[in-house]
Write a protein that binds this DNA or RNA. Structure first.
Length: 408
RNA sequence: GUGGGUGUAGCUCAGUUGGUUAGAGCGCCGGUUUGUGGCACCGGAGGCCGAGGGUUCAAAUCCCUUCAUCCACCCCA
């Protein structure tokens, strides 16, 4: 009995659920390709240490959300909790960390051991892009454009929030300042002790109060950085992309610096982040590669799938039949049509329902056209094409004309 | 990991103070119509009432445990 259950937070996906997910994936792929990004597919399993060194040992993700286990040779592995670390690892592993600017996208399942709720599963799907080797704000703008394009195509309402974290140096200074500033508070959470910047978006009342009077990260940026951020904002204005600056926005993964951003939706309850990303200039070097700047984002496919309006599927031709002989012919006919025009959705009905029921089914399943094959059709070699969507008389067609009608 | 809500047919949900054979709508299969749709009518299949234990003459109903799911915290995409 127990062995027939799915693992918590990892539901079987079928029907409308998977329709919506497929739809989101399709739009993502189309958009990535239109920006000329190349696919990168890395393994679902990695050494756990990879994520400790990138996502950050002190982060919640690594502290309590990783599926980790030892394999048969006692290697400590984990199911990947996010996509960037694996891709960066792969760049280094394969010697791709050279000076050429590279643009990659990925798509696949990620795993986090969290308590499931709406918009939060233990196995979930992310798609993302990584733009490697360009340190300019143009690179940041490019990925925001990709993100914006996808959300527009999916007709999703969302708000873009930005923040600028500076570089390693300014971040470090700010962290030091915060550490000192917050030192008055007793029982500071560990994640704040290790990475004080996390206090920025803390919801703990004590920390919140104290933080309301703390210096902003802006005060630690040098002129160059302020200018970079201004450039980015200016370019977004020019492109007429709405945004707001949220100086408390920090990301849960330790490798971020420079520009960070999130797209938020009101339709998902507490899990309101549908897409998030930013710059991670130190990560490639930090993992042992060359010192290359990089920027990217990831989006939650399931989260987007949860809020899109699913379009009803248009199917093209329903081929019904009345007995076994005609079914054989119908099947051959369907094969010919699909072979010559593979964009058509053609159903060969295999059941024994009467003609009325078959047409009813064809109609309710959204088919545009239907034919029924029987003895009459086999004898006369003509097919009666019914238009189920428009009120037009049936067309009587010879097989050749019939195929032509479907552009075969 | 913490707090709360909910688990009954494929789906959405009724089910009285515990009472004998657990229901509806949609969907599915079949018929009215041995070959022509959108409608209607008739019939049928499908349930260990999430799982395990307990109380009772008797449990979908009460109690305990557990699992799943949803909401909030937390975290993030």
């Amino acid at each position: 009995m127990n062995d027939l259950k799915t693992i918590r937070g990892m539901p079987d996906l079928y029907g409308e659920n998977i329709e919506a997910i497929s739809m989101v994936e399709k739009i993502c792929l189309k958009t990535f390709k239109s920006f000329n990004y190349q696919e990168f597919r890395t393994p679902v399993l990695e050494n756990k240490s990879l994520f400790d060194r990138s996502v950050g040992e002190s982060s919640d993700i690594m502290q309590k959300e990783v599926y980790e286990f030892k394999d048969r040779k006692d290697e400590l592995l984990c199911l990947r909790p996010e996509g960037t670390a694996g891709l960066v690892r792969a760049l280094i592993t394969n010697g791709l960390d050279n000076d050429e600017i590279k643009k990659f996208y990925y798509l696949g399942p990620m795993f986090r051991y969290e308590r499931p709720q709406k918009g939060r599963k233990r196995q979930f799907f992310q798609a993302g892009v990584e733009l490697i080797g360009d340190e300019s704000s143009d690179a940041d703008i490019e990925i925001i454009l990709i993100a914006n394009t996808i959300l527009k195509k999916l007709n999703i309402k969302s708000k873009l929030q930005l923040n600028y974290l500076g570089d390693q140096e300014s971040l470090e200074k700010y962290n030091e300042y915060l550490k000192e500033y917050l030192s008055g508070i007793s029982d500071l959470p560990k994640y704040v002790m290790k990475n004080p910047i996390r206090a920025l978006d803390s919801k703990d009342e004590g920390i919140k109060n104290k933080m309301s009077k703390a210096k902003s990260i802006k005060d630690f940026l040098n002129e160059n950085q302020i200018e970079e951020f201004n450039k980015t904002k200016y370019k977004l204005d020019e492109l007429e992309i709405d945004y707001s600056v949220n100086s408390r926005l920090v990301r849960g993964l330790d490798y971020y610096n420079g520009l960070v951003f999130e797209f938020l939706s009101d339709d998902l309850g507490a899990q309101n982040a549908i897409l998030g990303g930013g710059r991670y200039d130190g990560l490639i070097k930090g993992l042992g590669g060359r010192d290359l700047p990089a920027t990217g984002f990831a989006l939650g496919i399931d989260r987007l799938a949860d809020i899109i309006e699913l379009l009803s599927i248009e199917r093209d031709l329903f081929i019904g039949c009345v007995d076994k002989k005609s079914r054989t012919y119908a099947q051959a006919l369907g094969y010919k049509i699909r072979k010559n025009n593979n964009s058509l959705i053609v159903e060969n009905y295999l059941g024994n329902a009467n003609v009325g029921k078959q047409l009813k089914k064809a109609d309710s399943q959204g088919f545009k056209f239907a034919i029924i094959v029987g003895q009459d059709e086999l004898k006369s070699k003509t097919l009666k094409l019914k238009n189920l969507r428009e009120d037009k008389p049936d067309l009587e067609l010879k097989e050749k004309d019939f195929l032509e009608h479907f552009e075969c």
